[in-house]
Design a protein around this nucleic acid. Structure first.
Lengths: 327, 327
DNA sequence: CTGTTAGCGCTTTCAA
DNA sequence: TTGAAAGCGCTAACAG
């Protein structure tokens, strides 16, 4: 028994033709008589031939592989973006290779390099943060699109994100319209998207003449939200706008632990409108990010780069507010 | 400007040596004088050389790539297994490539093929179901380990899973000890792991002489749990053992919607002990699967195959019960 | 329509 | 210690 996989040469031998013909026939490249094609296809099937993608990629200088690096898998919003990218990529025959950074900068870098070493044709980074130099290094190998916000545009890197300031304003406006004045903002993030939402929150509060009622509850990444929330509640806060749905769910949990009714005793608004918003009780009012469009757009931007575009594009989509039972 | 990436030949030219020497030096393969090695390394750094993994893999017949296919990303248990696989793989210099099946058999097959085409050195399938022929086809290219339960052992495929029957028994025993008799089982799964937990539930109920009190609430995959739960509650059911944490959380949500207090009005036990169990309110009592060991074991099994093992191994780990506030 | 040839970028004998 | 040459499996001119 020959343990190694059959190659194009084995197929050629079996079909009694040259290996070039096999290559042509199997790819349906035209210019092969129906009879020989049939013979070749059958021979390939008989010996269980599968083309070696490595060899093809080496020769063609393209892999039809799309690398997707996601900061973490434990936020449903991220995985939803990944799914929208996949939906957009597949019709073009692109295979998506997923890697995840486990929220560590070093690991992110390593995964991006690994995908680059594999010669992916394009890279989509789903993260609210990544080092500019890292992205630029990757972009020397293949076009890179960042889905998520960077502090400022990175030269050579396209981006897709939503208007965080506006999203935050939607949340605050809604709470103010419902009669809230002491609206606090809960955030554990010092990354660009988090900062932008926070800035949007503060601007909106000021616009409503509530600047002196504004209160930002900061917490470390793995710290409980409890202490900060308790302090805010004692100070008379009646509503919380959280930086994302995960943190909003933390607020709901804390309210549950303290026996505070939502929304009667405390109104809560999240951000992302991820699956978590529907799973939470009460269901979360949340700022919706248009994920489906974001994934599609990211893939479109790659196509444009492949077609030759050299100028950068930074797409900003508008979020909307989805009102549910938590406000 | 030369747009294509520098190759080993460019490095050789710059260092004034042959390309074989570059290959040796860059891999630290010994047999290269310190001086030349130094020169080569510097030259490589200067022109920003990165080795082409495709070419190397083609030549060496191995990629150092580990494919991980996961049925879906929206169950935290799955992603936790993936993380444990990654932790186990990295010390060996293996890069993990993740693909996900979006819960569709066709897509699973396609993703497995795609990874096979890339010549991954091994494949780990994290799923409670996959077609035996599909796995066996993949196993002709590289060793395959299934993490999760198949209906019966698949010849040629190693597996790692937990003892679902025993896990179900732990849940039932605990509820019976707490005084429950009308314990229902909620399940939306007809796949092996789900069936095994169901069988374990039924066996345990029978063992406690409660066979006539047993009640299985079946629902379609995307159907709400509500109707079946309401019927069970009307029938006097006081506890639910759910097939996994996601379904247990559905029960908690339904209880919330109906104003039923947990655990006073209804006790709930989940399975997996995923992050969801801690995020739920009240926190879920759940059967813990030893994920960390499972991921490690899966990688170990691959190593054994690479080292030449040809007999199949099927590892079954023991679950434990973690008691929290929902019971 | 079909076959020959020359590589893609790398590793790996085998000589020098 | 170093270099020359062969070739992994495939595609892409170029001939015939």
């Amino acid at each position: 028994m020959n343990s190694s996989r059959p190659t194009i040469v084995d197929v050629a031998a079996r079909a009694g033709v040259s290996k070039s013909l096999v290559s042509l026939a199997l790819r349906g490249d035209g210019g092969v008589s129906a009879a020989t094609r049939e013979r070749i296809v059958r021979a390939a099937a008989e010996i269980g031939y599968r083309s070696n993608a490595l060899a093809r990629a080496l020769r063609q200088h393209r892999t039809m592989l799309l690398g997707v690096v996601v900061a973490s898998l434990d936020n449903p919003y991220h995985t939803e973006v990944v799914e929208s990218v996949e939906r957009a990529a597949e019709p073009h025959g692109l295979s998506v290779l997923l890697a995840h950074g486990a929220r560590k900068a070093g690991r992110m870098a390593e995964r991006i390099d690994a995908l680059g070493d594999l010669n992916v044709d394009g890279l989509i980074v789903v993260s609210s943060w990544a080092a500019p130099e890292l992205l630029q290094a990757a972009a020397r190998r293949a076009p890179v699109v960042m889905v998520g916000r960077s502090l400022e545009p990175v030269a050579g890197i396209d981006s897709v994100n939503n208007d965080d300031e506006h999203g935050a304003a939607l949340a605050v406006d809604h709470l103010v319209a419902a009669g809230h004045e002491r609206i606090a903002h809960l955030t554990s993030s010092t990354r660009p998207a988090g900062l932008a939402r926070r800035a949007g929150y503060e601007a909106a509060m000021a616009r409503h003449g509530l600047a002196d009622r504004a209160r930002v509850i900061e917490r470390g990444r793995d710290e409980p939200a409890g202490p900060g929330l308790d302090a805010a509640l004692e100070a008379g806060c009646s509503a919380i706008f959280a930086r994302n749905d995960v943190e909003a769910d933390d607020v709901l949990n804390h309210a549950w632990d303290r026996g505070i009714a939502v929304p009667e005793g405390l109104a809560v608004v999240g951000y992302d409108d991820s699956a978590l918003a529907l799973r939470a009780r009460p269901r979360l009012t949340s700022v919706h990010q248009p994920r489906a469009e974001m994934g599609e757009l990211a893939v479109d931007l790659l196509h444009e780069r492949w077609a030759g575009r050299t100028t950068d594009r930074h797409e900003v989509l508008e979020p909307t507010l989805v009102i549910r039972a938590s406000t």
